[in-house]
Computed example of a mutant assay.
Amino acid sequence: MHGPSLVSWLLAVLTAASGGYCLSRLRRAPCARAGEAARPRRLRAHESDLAEGLMGCGMAAMAVTGTAVPGEVWAWVYGPPAVLLLLAALRRPARRAHRLHHAVGALAMTYMALAMTAGQGHAGHHATGGSPALTGALLAYFGGYALWSGSRLLSGSAGAVPVASAGLPRACRLSVVIGMFAMLLTM
């Protein structure tokens, strides 16, 4: 990631905390005895937590390591989950939009990693990598998603965030999206 190192470290802390929280939510048992009707919902929540945890921790690692890790490695980390999420969204209509959002995030991570590698330049000069049109489209998508998600977060119970219910997971998802926007902005 180009830009001041303080911004990289702050982004790394924010996304690592969000990703760590999402991964910690995986410890809940998906097959708890609350009933068979609740089981599919818990499995979808685990899928979402896993995707968001992977994105958050990966963004933290990318922000800190920069180009020290080759872009091809990151492409192999994020490419297969993107393909799996795209296939799952096409095969199952339940939560299609959510899976597509995670697939776009994984594809954006792959794109950023490959663009950073391609744009390293020579003799210490930083060249910009990636397509300006694609970067702009991703910025528009994640910026719009951040505004939509933030408004949903604040609209619950007269502006107060219900932390015990869905407020904290939504806030973590929002911070990961804001981190993605910031990383795209510095490309």
Rank of each mutant, 00 (worst) to 15 (best):
W76E: 03
M116T: 14
F142Y: 10
G19F: 08
T15R: 03
W76R: 12
W76M: 06
W74I: 10
L90N: 01
G144F: 05
F142T: 11
R27K: 06
V13Y: 12
V163N: 01
R33E: 06
R33W: 08
H101E: 05
H122Q: 05
S175K: 05
Q120P: 10
H102D: 00
L86H: 00
P169Q: 11
L23A: 15
L50P: 08
G179E: 03
G20K: 14
Y145D: 12
V163F: 06
M183I: 11
A88T: 00
G121K: 03
V83I: 12
A37S: 14
I178F: 08
R42S: 14
C22R: 11
R95A: 13
M62C: 04
R39K: 13
L153S: 06
A158M: 00
M109E: 03
G20N: 11
R96P: 02
A38Q: 15
W148V: 10
L54Y: 07
R27M: 01
V73M: 03
R25A: 05
R95E: 04
T65I: 02
G179N: 04
P70Q: 05
P4K: 15
H98A: 12
A75F: 03
M187K: 12
V104F: 06
W74V: 07
Y111V: 09
V104N: 07
T128I: 15
H2M: 06
V7T: 15
C57Q: 09
L50F: 05
V13G: 13
L185E: 14
H46A: 09
G129L: 04
M180D: 09
A94L: 03
L114V: 03
S8N: 12
P80M: 00
S151W: 02
T67Y: 09
A51N: 01
E36R: 15
H102N: 00
H98E: 13
